[in-house]
Write a protein that binds this DNA or RNA. Structure first.
Ligand SMILES: [Mn+2]
Ligand SMILES: [Mn+2]
Ligand SMILES: [Mn+2]
Ligand SMILES: [Mn+2]
Lengths: 233, 233
DNA sequence: CAACAAAGTTAGTCAACTCTAACTCAGTTT
DNA sequence: AAACTGAGTTAGAGTTGACTAACTTTGTTG
């Protein structure tokens, strides 16, 4: 038992690696995908045997439950640990965006490392300084320090009917090049789009942003989530 | 060769543990103390064998030079690596103090962890946002991104003659309880004190802060560094 | 000078993570 | 039914950084 100096002071937390596994299982669960060994390994960029071994360890520690060979669920302890990391991650993103004007395509990578190094005390100060924010720069909801959390996603832009007015509520932060491109098109959280034609055979979806017409490839339009505006004519 | 996920993205840097060793050797060098295996081990809170082995590793990597059995010096590569960590550490302290009003007795512990997780890009943003600060909240000089750095300490309050007017320029950040106490006495970087009597046999040094008389034990007055004011009558 | 204490090193372990290679096991295909 | 394929696991090994126990080396002191 010889904790690395980087983790020494951060008490009862899972290791950085374990935190990343928990976060990944949580994310897969929220998006409805099965948390199989392979999916987790791919998401984390580790080999399948590594993921297999780590998942067994997490199961032994009571953080993960192996439902069947292809499905892993978080136990309630595991879920609460995962939520703590997710909370830190999103608060950090919000903090960097707010205090340093860091663009939304950069904050994720920074938070990916900092989430393991930010103490509870610092987390609390960030939360307070930002006025207890509820969403990060990508529209991801920030889990409360304790209590319930709803990770439900909105509808993908993908699925919005032609002619609809669509308000962007959330954009996946996984692909930073995509985020950069969306920003260049004028699309961020809070943007309102008018949905146009979808060209066939994998062609683009046309949308109007302000008075510009923009073409979004299917890979892009799947990343943008939001709601069709009702009362708006 | 299997980098931990927490370090994966931070390229050519020494490991967090190695960075802490380099920083410690640098600090010992600046304060004139010999960087022996034991001193380093004590400072880092590791066993002597651990330090012995790590120092050999750092020497093999060309970061540390073993002058004699009791004296370790940084090579120029080692010094430049150390300066990069020290720069990150102090910028982070300044950043936390500036953006979160974090008190000077808390910033050090946070920076101790964050210094290993902050990317070059984030470091640059922090530096720019603060207007390229030259000193951290304890008055420690922030090494430039490249080029020379002068770590010279001022005179300890300890050594100031009775009757002198003393301007506080720098306070050691090692003991956070001491920092808290000094702040409670109204003593921070920039404070001006009038030095009074030093009581014998390890008794306190009396100083005037504004219109209050304060007693500083020898342990405290050794932490406070600054300069006797000349032109001031 | 001999004895002792302090400092440094070596050897042997351990724990956490990762890897590759080689296997098992299921679920398709043909 | 046999063969292939994909997913999961086991085995063996490497890296980093820590530990304790047991030296050796050096320097101080009676
Ligand atoms: Mn992470
Ligand atoms: Mn996010
Ligand atoms: Mn550190
Ligand atoms: Mn400092």
């Amino acid at each position: 038992m010889a904790p690395n100096s980087a983790t020494r002071t951060l008490g009862g937390r899972p290791s950085p690696a374990a935190e990343d596994y928990l976060k990944t299982i949580f994310a897969l669960g929220s998006s409805g995908d099965a948390a199989s060994v392979s999916t987790i390994a791919t998401r984390l960029g580790v080999s399948r045997p590594s993921a297999s071994v780590m998942l067994k360890r997490l199961a032994d520690e009571g953080l993960v439950e192996r439902v069947d060979r292809h499905r892993h669920l978080l136990t309630s302890k595991g879920r609460s640990d995962a939520l703590r990391v997710v909370r830190r991650h999103r608060l950090i993103e919000a903090f960097l965006a707010a205090t340093l004007d860091m663009p939304w395509d950069e904050v994720h990578a920074e938070a990916e490392l900092l989430e393991h190094a930010v103490s509870d005390r610092l987390e609390a100060r960030i939360d307070a300084a930002l006025g207890h924010p509820t969403h990060d720069p990508h529209g991801d909801p920030i889990p409360p320090r304790q209590g319930d959390h709803d990770e439900a996603w909105h509808e993908p832009l993908d699925a919005a009917p032609p002619g609809a007015t669509f308000r962007v509520e959330r954009v996946s932060d996984r692909d930073s090049a995509a985020l950069r491109h969306l920003a260049a098109l004028g699309i961020t959280v809070g943007s309102t789009l008018v949905v146009g034609e979808r060209e066939p055979f994998g062609g683009p979806l046309w949308v109007r942003v302000g008075r510009r017409r923009r073409a979004l490839g299917p890979g892009l339009s799947r990343l943008v989530h939001g709601a069709v505006q009702e009362g708006q004519r």
